[in-house]
Every structure is written in structure tokens, then in C-alpha cells.
Design a protein around this nucleic acid. Structure first.
Length: 907
DNA sequence: CTACAGACTTGCCCCAAGCCTC
DNA sequence: GAGGCTTGGGGCAAGTCTGTAG
């Protein structure tokens, strides 16, 4: 494997999975990004840590945690025990996964969602209302200080998540508002101080720790050989984490490994250079500094409710929990060690920052080694003859291949789409050639091929598990070498190293190109990006060669080819989500969103003021920003005619918005992936009026915001906050909603109950973001089965009650349905049974409700992309919920960078 | 300033595995 | 042990956003 080759010094280490530290290194190391990350990290962690450091206890803890912390942790022996049962984790995952996905191409799922919509609306409405009140903007500006964690600020609702507001409106509105006040007062109290320390037994620590280990092993283990090399960072990390205690040293070593600038760079970051790039940097630096000082105030941003909780709970329980949590997570921490260090530094040094992540043009890596990509096997003709006009037709392998692509899609919705067939025919007929017998699709009968396909599928299914296993291993063996890359000396998983196979284009919605042939990609289509000193990957297809070899370390892709459907576009091969490169940018994304917290008040004030601006563009920007903020709409870039006709905020058409007096707007449009967005919301009157103005004199298909496009909008947003773009609002509102809901609604209870709270918050976010899924085909069957079971149980209950009455009178129970005599039980025993049955019924009814509620809501997308994992990790630590209950294995790997967060972390 | 190229992130669905129930 | 349901991850389409050339 490629990996070994590079081996570079560094590499070797991998073996030990333990070296958790590696991860850190990365962060540090990675040059530009690293910096950023570092900086961010610093913030984030530092914030809490550093920032807090100012603060009493917590800080201390943190610090310790970082460097020493690990030691401390290690101290508690308790840990070890917990570590073990890895098993748990899997289960947990299940639990977490609540919503099961269903598929079926329903476009309008939304309709079904009506309920959701309602709730949404409610929420939103609240928001709106709330918003208005908030207006007092000003603060922000000056405030810029962002802090990472905390900032102070306003207590206003601004900081609050939309959801909060919304809710507030609906029913709960009060909570938010009322609560808030008190909260503030309390907020300072916070946290930590109490942190008592840690003694807690880590027992609980659970899974996460173990998990990590596992995962590592898992990954690595699979591979026979080197556990070392192979292990993904994440795993390493985790392991490290767990191990860490002892290992700190190691970590250091590791860090050393990363020779690249990185390590240093990280330092720099600490140092904080005055930002390079953009504004963001500046901000950041500011933030940092500010933060330090502010520490106390910080919480202002936090929704009151949250604060309250913090303060309150924080005390004893919290602290203890924290400790525990910490421990649990501690393993993870190790990972972060480096980061922590950085943070510390940052504190001191604060300042600098790194360039913003994107770091355009910035160096993303110093050395990059990988093995290129793997191609799908060549087509193997099956020789099954399709029919044309009732007669079997001979096809060349090439013609047959494309015919098979079509035949196999027989039972999909695409077959009912004329556009699909038309495009397919256009491409296939070219391959058939002019004089071919087949003159059109109408007389084609692909059934023989379809049936052959079904048989093949069935054969595969019927293979013995040994055969399946052998096949799997064979595949793994072939792919092994492509699965890993070595970035700056660290082995990282590659995301999509398999070249896309040929097929028919499955565009979503009414895509004009659906059905077109996506031709086979060959080596001569592929550009490889690799380190200068790395060996160029051997072209896996004999006699062919790569299109081009590049050594561009300002980008993260390992390879790309032009999309055969749209040659102007590219298909990239990137590292996996668990890689530190991706982790860094993920973290940066969330830090930016957190930064928005400091500016949001001002931004809202600004757009509110501009609802009535004289200048139309200004007014449109104001209204668009409002919609993006309140409804979490996407920016809405312009699209070409050869793409599906979907819209986002800036591309809304007049017909997509209906004004309903006195001040409601009904939105109905197809958004990304042609998912319908339907929502009726109450808006502030000026917004309502402005929309009306934008609509007058236009036809339904005209642009609502005719003066606007995403670049203008984003340019404006950047004036308000460095680095701010439309999509940041989605991240911000999603994360702050989660943070707020979790903190408001979590109560004492068992883990399962807390998980339900989490799911509910997750669902709220999914609704805000309009993350839908199609209703499972078997949904209604499942529901009726549940209903039946419940009915049955109720029958049982009734019988039991009868038996109970009789038993009390000393009579024997009645015979059962089969006429058999039932066992004679004591009244106590029957009562117990009744109670058990009741519990069962309740649980089933709850499950049913959940299933119904989530039938069109997809929770996964927000979890993966919008919810700052630190919120979840910190909450888990605070409430002693094993992180595995919320994050599955891949999310744990993806969010390795967040595991070490302080339990007090608030978005 | 616009259009386009380029580089990522986000998003839904599919499907093989694993899990659960009977 | 079979069959149905759930899950996790892969696949790849479809967005966002930045930089640059003209």
C-alpha cells in the first residue's frame, strides 16, 4: 500500500493505535488550515478553557484537561473498567437512530408534513414576533468581540434560536421570554466552578471511550496487516484518547512527527498573526482577546434558559457529571491535546489567527501520498437478448451494456418520465448506429434482460455467508491500497476512491438531462493531485495513462475528472469525513456560525431598519436576509436551463410567495433536490408590505428579488460580519436551536428519556431546515401492525382486569380464547401483569407517535452538517448520556475533533 | 461587474448488513 | 432460521461560495 511507501518516518507510528495524539498533530500541523483550526480550536476550546481560565474552576479544569488533564484523568482508575464494553455502542446507536429512513421518491412529502409545517409555522411565527422586539441592535457592532463561547451580549432573544422564539410564540413562547430574564442573572454563576472534580468514576464513561477504541481497531483490525498504518486518524485519536493518559508523551512524539510546518504553524496560530485574510481573521483575533477578558459575561449570548440551567445544574451535579463526562470523553481529549495546547497558547498569545479556513490559495498540506483511484471492472456481456417488435435482437457488448442500464431501471419512477426515455434514446440510438433494426423505444422489450438482472440479484442473495465473506474480502483486498492517503505523514482515509461507474444519469426532480448516458471514465479523464515527492500512482488499466499529474497543495482533492453529463463540472476525490483536513474545515464552519452570535443582533437590526429603505436593492437585501435568517432558506444561486428548476431565496419567483392578509406569507417552491418547501408564516408587517411591492407589476414567473443575486447578498453580509455568507445562518440557527432546546428541556431522568429529548431537538432542527425523506413504502403497513398489536394488548388488559376481579373474589380465571383454562394467579400477580401490559401499551403508542411524526423528517442531515457536535458532546457529558447514544461510529470518527470539548460548552 | 471555473459542502436515496421478531 | 425492519454507509446529485478573467 501506498501508505507504507511513504512511510515516512511519521508513518510508522500508526501502528500503535494508541498514539492518539496524532490527530492533534494534524491540526497543528496543517498549515494554513491548521492555523485556522488552531485558532478556532483555541477559541472553542480555549474559550471555554482559556477564556474561562479566567474563570475559576472550570478553567482550571480545562487546562488540566488539556495537558495535565489527561493525567488527572488517568488517575482515576475507574476509567479502565468502563472502557471495555464496546459492545454497547452499537446498540446505542440504534437507539439514537430513530427515524428510519424510508425511501420512495415522493416529491411532495411535504404535504404529509403538514403537521410539521404547522409546528414550524408556529415556531417561526414566534420567532418573528420575537424578532421584532429585539431590534435594538447596536450592541453588536461594537461587540464584535466575539467570543467564542460566550460572549456576552445581549440577552436578547437574538441570541436565542429561532426555534425558541417560535415556540415561544406558539405555546411555549413564554418560556423563552420569561425565562430569559432570570436566566441572565443566573448565568454568570455558571458553570464550572463547581466542578468539583473529578472524581467520578468513569465507569460511565462509556462507550465513547470504548467506542473509539473499537472503531480504531475495527478499522485497522480489518486489515490484517498493519494495524498501525491503516488506522484512521479518528480511530487513532480515539484510542489515543483512551490511552492518552499514559500516552501524553506519545502524543508529543506524534506531534513531532508532523514535521511539516504544521506543528509550527499551529504555534503560529497561537501566536495569532493578525489575520491574514479576511476579515474573519480579524474578528477572530478580536474575539479572542475580548473573550479572555470577558469571560464572565459571555454567556449573554446563550439563551437565557440555557444559562439558567447552566448555573443551576452546573453546580454539583453538573460538575460531577462533567467530570464523568470528561472522563468518558477524555479519551477523545487526548486527541485534542495538541489543540488544547494551542489553545493555551492562544490564550496567552491570542491573537492571531489564521487565515480563514477556506484559505483559498493557502497551503493545505505539505506532503501527500496516495494510490490514485480504482476503476469499476470492464463490462461483462451477459448475452441475454432483448426483444424488438417481438423478436430477439443481437446487440454488441457496448449496445447491450447501455440497454442493460435501462432495463434494470424498469421498476423505478424514471420509467414513467418521457424526458428520461427521450434522453436515453438519444444516447443509445447513437450507439446502436444508423442502420440498426431498433428504430425507437416503443417496440423495445427489455424484459428478458430485466429478468436476468433479477435472477442475478437473487443468486447473489442466495450465496452462503462464506461465499459472501470471501467476495467481500476479495474486494477489500483489491481496494485496500486505494483506501488510504498519507497527508503530512498521517494516514487518512480517502472518501470516494472508486471512480463512478457508467450508468444512466439520475437527475432529481424534473431534470432535463435525466436518462442521458453517463459514459465510462477512463484514466485519461483523470487528473491526479499528489505531493511532489510522492510516487505517481500506477495507472491500474494497462496501456493507459492519467490525464495529468498535479502537485497543488492549496487544494484538498486527490483526483478529479470532468462530469460526463456536464463537462463543465468536476467530480472530485476527497479525503473522508473523518480526516483531519475535513475536520478542520468543519470546525471552522461552526466557529464562524458561533461568531455570528455576536453579530446577529446588529444584523437583525440592520435588516429590520432596511425593510423600508428607499433603495430597492437595499430593501430586497433586507427582506431576503430576513427570510434566510428566519426560515433558514438557502441562498439560491442562479441555475442554468439544463438543470432542474429549483429555487432558493434569491431566486424565488413571484409565484412562490403568496401574501395572505393581514401579514402572512405562504411559501411554496421546490428547493434543493426538488424538495418542496411549503410554509405559511406570519411576518413583520414591513416585510409583508415589501414582498407585496416586489410582486407588483410582475408575472408569477418573474424573480421576486429582481435586484438581487447571491453574490450581492453575500457581499452585503460580509460587510456586516467578516466571512459571513447566507449559509452560515442555517448553521447558526440549527446549532443554536439545538443548544437552546437541549438546555431548556433536558430534565432528570434515565438515558432513554434524555435521548428522546435530543431527538426532539434534532427533529425541530430538521424541520427548520426542511430536511425531508420520502415516506417508507411500508409505513402504513407498519402503522397498522402496531395498531393491531396495541388493540391486542388492550384486549389482554381487559381480560386481566376480569381475572383480577374474579381472583379477588376467589374465583378462577375465565378460559382463554382457545378454551383452555388459564393458570390461577394471585391478585397481586395479576396486578403486576396489568401494570406490565400498560407499560407495553404506552411504549408502543409512543413509538407509533414517533414513527408517525418522523415519517417525513430526516434527522441525519442536520446531525451531519448543521449541528455543532460540541453541543452534543458537551450535553452528553453534562447529562451522562453516552455519546454513542447520539453519534454512530462514523459520526464519532467525523467529530473526533469535538470530543474533547468542555462540558460547559455552549454554542 | 458578470460569467465562469473551481473547490467544497450539503442532501436524499439506495442497498447490503445487521438486528429483531416470530 | 426465515423474513421484515432498521441502520449505516456509499453513491452521487445538487447546492454554496470564492477567485479570476475579460
Amino acid at each position: 500500500m501506498a501508505v507504507e511507501a511513504p512511510s515516512k518516518h511519521v508513518f510508522d507510528f500508526d501502528d500503535d493505535d494508541d498514539d492518539g495524539p496524532i490527530v492533534f498533530k494534524r491540526n497543528n500541523t496543517s498549515s494554513s488550515k491548521q492555523n485556522q483550526l488552531n485558532s478556532e480550536v483555541k477559541k472553542a476550546s480555549s474559550q471555554r478553557y482559556d477564556g474561562q481560565s479566567g474563570r475559576p474552576a472550570s478553567d482550571a479544569r480545562v487546562l488540566n484537561g488539556q495537558s495535565t488533564g489527561s493525567q488527572n484523568k488517568s488517575i482515576p482508575p475507574s476509567k479502565s473498567p468502563p472502557v471495555r464494553s464496546p459492545i454497547l455502542s452499537p446498540k446505542s446507536s440504534n437507539s439514537s437512530a430513530k427515524a428510519s429512513p424510508v425511501r420512495s421518491p415522493v416529491v411532495n412529502s411535504k404535504a404529509s408534513t403538514s403537521l410539521n409545517d404547522q409546528s414550524k409555522q408556529a415556531m417561526r411565527q414566534n420567532k418573528f414576533t420575537a424578532v421584532k422586539e429585539e431590534k435594538s441592535p447596536m450592541k453588536t457592532t461594537e461587540t464584535n468581540s466575539d467570543d467564542d463561547d460566550d460572549d456576552d451580549d445581549d440577552d436578547d432573544d437574538d441570541s436565542q434560536p429561532l426555534s425558541a422564539r417560535l415556540k415561544g410564540i406558539s405555546s411555549q413562547g413564554n418560556k423563552g421570554a420569561s425565562t430569559s430574564t432570570p436566566a441572565q442573572s443566573q448565568r454568570l454563576v455558571p458553570k464550572i466552578e463547581i466542578k468539583v472534580s473529578a472524581e467520578d468514576p468513569d465507569d460511565e464513561a462509556p462507550l465513547s471511550a470504548r467506542f473509539k477504541m473499537k472503531s480504531n481497531t475495527g478499522t485497522s483490525s480489518n486489515k490484517p496487516y498493519e494495524s498501525h498504518e491503516k488506522k484512521p486518524l479518528a480511530s487513532k485519536i480515539q484510542q489515543n484518547g483512551s490511552i492518552m493518559k499514559d500516552k501524553q508523551q506519545k502524543s508529543s512524539l506524534l506531534s513531532d512527527k508532523r514535521p511539516l510546518d504544521k506543528g509550527n504553524s499551529s504555534d503560529q496560530s497561537y501566536a495569532k498573526k493578525p489575520k491574514i485574510s479576511d476579515t474573519p481573521t480579524t474578528l477572530k483575533s478580536k474575539q479572542l482577546t475580548v473573550k479572555a477578558e470577558k469571560a464572565e459575561e459571555d454567556d449573554d449570548h446563550i439563551p437565557i434558559s440555557q444559562r439558567i440551567k447552566k448555573s443551576v445544574s452546573s453546580d454539583s451535579k453538573t460538575s460531577s457529571m462533567k467530570q464523568k463526562a470528561t472522563k468518558v470523553v477524555s479519551s477523545l481529549k487526548k486527541i485534542n491535546k495538541n489543540s488544547k495546547k494551542e489553545m493555551k497558547k492562544s490564550k496567552y498569545g491570542k491573537s492571531t489567527k489564521l487565515s480563514p479556513s477556506s484559505g483559498d490559495g493557502q497551503k493545505k498540506w505539505s506532503t501527500l501520498v496516495h494510490n490514485g483511484v480504482i476503476f469499476p471492472p470492464p463490462y461483462k456481456p451477459h448475452g441475454i437478448k432483448m426483444l424488438y417488435d417481438g423478436r430477439s435482437v443481437d446487440l454488441t457488448p457496448e449496445q447491450e451494456e447501455v440497454a442493460t442500464m435501462f432495463a434494470v431501471m424498469k421498476d423505478t419512477d424514471y420509467m414513467s418520465k418521457p424526458q428520461f426515455k427521450k434522453n436515453f434514446w438519444e444516447d443509445w440510438s447513437k450507439i446502436l448506429g444508423r442502420g440498426h433494426i431498433i428504430k425507437g423505444l416503443d417496440k423495445c422489450d427489455f424484459t428478458p434482460i430485466y429478468e436476468w438482472h433479477l435472477e442475478e440479484k437473487e443468486k447473489k442473495k442466495q450465496m452462503s455467508s462464506e461465499e459472501k465473506k470471501a467476495l467481500k474480502e476479495e474486494k477489500l483486498k483489491q481496494e485496500e491500497k486505494y483506501m488510504w492517503a498519507i497527508v503530512d505523514g498521517v494516514k487518512e482515509k480517502v472518501g470516494n476512491f472508486r471512480v463512478e461507474p457508467p450508468g444512466l444519469f439520475r437527475g432529481r426532480g424534473e431534470h432535463p438531462k435525466m436518462g442521458k448516458l453517463k459514459r465510462r471514465i477512463r484514466p485519461c479523464d483523470i487528473t491526479i493531485n499528489i505531493g511532489k515527492d510522492a510516487p505517481i500512482p500506477e495507472c491500474p488499466i494497462p496501456g493507459e495513462r492519467w490525464k495529468e499529474i498535479k502537485h497543488d497543495n492549496t487544494v484538498t482533492w486527490l483526483a478529479f475528472w470532468n462530469d460526463p453529463i456536464n463537462p463543465k463540472e468536476f467530480k472530485y476525490v476527497f479525503l473522508a469525513a473523518s480526516s483531519s483536513l475535513k475536520g478542520q474545515s468543519d470546525k471552522e464552519k461552526y466557529e464562524k456560525a458561533r461568531l455570528l452570535k455576536d453579530y446577529i443582533k446588529n444584523i437583525r437590526a440592520t435588516y429590520t431598519k432596511n425593510f423600508t429603505a428607499k433603495d430597492v436593492t437595499k430593501r430586497q437585501i433586507a427582506v431576503a436576509t430576513y427570510l434566510i435568517d428566519k426560515l433558514a432558506l438557502r441562498a439560491g444561486n442562479e441555475k442554468d436551463d439544463d438543470e432542474a428548476d429549483t429555487v432558493g431565496c434569491c431566486t424565488l419567483k413571484v409565484g412562490n410567495v403568496e401574501c395572505i392578509p393581514p401579514n402572512k406569507l405562504k411559501f411554496d417552491f421546490l428547493g434543493k433536490d426538488s424538495i418542496q418547501y411549503v410554509n405559511t408564516v406570519e411576518v413583520e408587517l414591513p416585510v409583508y408590505k415589501a414582498i407585496g411591492q416586489f410582486q407588483t407589476g410582475k408575472s408569477k414567473t418573474d424573480d421576486l428579488f429582481d435586484e438581487l443575486d447571491t453574490s450581492k447578498l453575500n457581499a452585503h453580509l460580509k460587510e456586516l460580519m467578516p466571512g459571513l455568507t447566507a449559509k452560515v445562518f442555517r448553521t447558526y440557527n440549527a446549532s443554536i436551536t439545538l443548544d437552546d432546546m437541549l438546555n431548556k428541556e433536558t430534565r432528570d431522568g434515565d438515558v432513554a428519556e434524555k435521548v428522546v429529548i435530543y431527538q426532539r431537538a434534532n427533529k425541530e432542527v430538521a424541520i427548520i431546515c426542511n430536511h425531508q425523506r420520502t415516506i417508507s413504502k411500508s409505513h402504513s403497513a407498519q402503522m397498522s401492525r402496531l395498531t393491531e398489536k396495541i388493540t391486542e394488548l388492550k384486549g389482554v388488559l381487559k381480560e386481566l382486569k376480569t381475572d383480577l376481579d374474579r381472583a379477588k373474589k376467589g374465583k378462577p380465571p375465565l378460559k382463554d380464547a382457545d378454551g383452555k383454562q388459564k393458570r390461577n394467579l394471585s391478585p397481586e400477580a395479576i396486578e403486576k401483569k396489568i401494570a406490565q401490559t400498560n407499560v407495553k401499551i404506552e411504549k408502543m403508542e409512543r413509538d407509533m407517535q414517533t414513527k408517525e411524526d418522523l415519517k417525513t423528517v430526516a434527522l441525519g442531515t442536520s446531525k451531519i452538517n448543521y449541528l455543532d457536535p460540541r453541543i452534543t458532546v458537551a450535553w452528553c457529558k453534562r447529562h451522562e448520556v453516552p455519546i454513542e447514544k447520539i453519534f454512530n461510529k462514523s459520526l464519532l470518527a467525523k467529530f473526533a475533533w469535538a470530543m474533547d470539548v468542555d462540558p460547559d460548552f455552549r454554542f
